[in-house]
Amino acid sequence: MKSILFCTSYIRNEQAWQERYQRWLDYYEDGPIAASKKIMIDDGSPYLPPPDLIKTVPFTAPLSLFNDDKVIVRFDNNLGRQSMSVYPGWWRSFLHSVTLARELGADKIIHIESDAYILSPRLADFINGIESGWHVMWSECYRFPETAIQVVCSDQFEIFEQFKARQPDLNYGDLAENLLPFTSVNRQFKGDRYSEIRRNRGMFRSKKFDGIPLFQESFFRAKIPLDADFVTQALISQQFAFRKDD
């Protein structure tokens, strides 16, 4: 199956590019996910990387005309995020992926956010081998579907397009985890938003300490387990690598 791999993006400055988006691009450059194109669908970023690193094209440009295996598809204005449940910038970028998939003749859309990483061969093999359905992972910490990693196969493209057409103003008013019409939540894979999981702080466990810089240090955050299949909302301070031999 022909697949595209994409993340959504909003690049504030060069540091954000290097620490988040370049990191994502380097990680997936030569694997572990099989995809004919790696795409960042951009919400009108104020900073764009040099074209020798990755080409940027307008969202109106026919992507099939570009042979590059990696590209930024950029909307010319920023819609951003207004609240926890109102984030039209992300919705616009995410929903545009099905348009690109149709244009490129792809059979599968693989969505892995710019702070999400596949860590194990078994999950990579699962993603690469899926041929039907709309799949997401599971966050045990929050007890809800993890939509930072999704696989949408061509049998779901029409449903994807119908979902997109229902809300042209992008005002969904709820979290994507509660709205997207995925067909499978894959709880057999281990992973989470480990940067948001706090270690037991003993006498300092009260939330009133959360705003103190000391208690935001990595020492007080959960470590990524050695047997994790994926991590989402990864921080630059978190160290991990793809396990080639499981």
Rank of each mutant, 00 (worst) to 15 (best):
D42K: 05
S85C: 05
A35C: 10
P58E: 06
S83Y: 09
I72P: 01
V86T: 13
K70Y: 05
I39M: 07
V86I: 15
T60Q: 13
D69N: 10
Q82I: 12
S45F: 04
N77Q: 06
L48S: 13
Y47N: 10
G44L: 02
A61L: 09
Q82T: 14
D76G: 02
D76S: 05
P62I: 12
M40D: 08
G89I: 09
S45R: 09
V57M: 12
L79P: 04
L95T: 05
G44Y: 04
K70S: 11
F75E: 08
K38R: 13
P50C: 08
K37A: 08
R92G: 01
G44R: 09
P46I: 10
Y47E: 02
S45A: 07
L48Q: 13
V57F: 01
R81G: 05
L53E: 15
R74S: 13
P88R: 11
N78Y: 14
P88Y: 00
W90A: 05
L53V: 15
D42L: 05
P58V: 08
D69C: 05
W91L: 02
N78R: 15
Y87L: 12
K38V: 04
L65W: 01
D76N: 08
M40Y: 08
M84T: 12
N77R: 04
P88D: 05
P50D: 14
S64R: 03
S93H: 01
K70V: 00
D68N: 11
S45N: 13
D52I: 06
S64V: 07
N77V: 06
S93N: 11
N67R: 02
P88A: 04
T60G: 06
L53P: 08
L53F: 12
R74L: 02
R74A: 14
L63A: 02
Y47V: 09
N67S: 04
F94E: 10
S36W: 02
I54S: 06
K38L: 06
G44K: 05
K55W: 11
Y47H: 11
I54E: 03
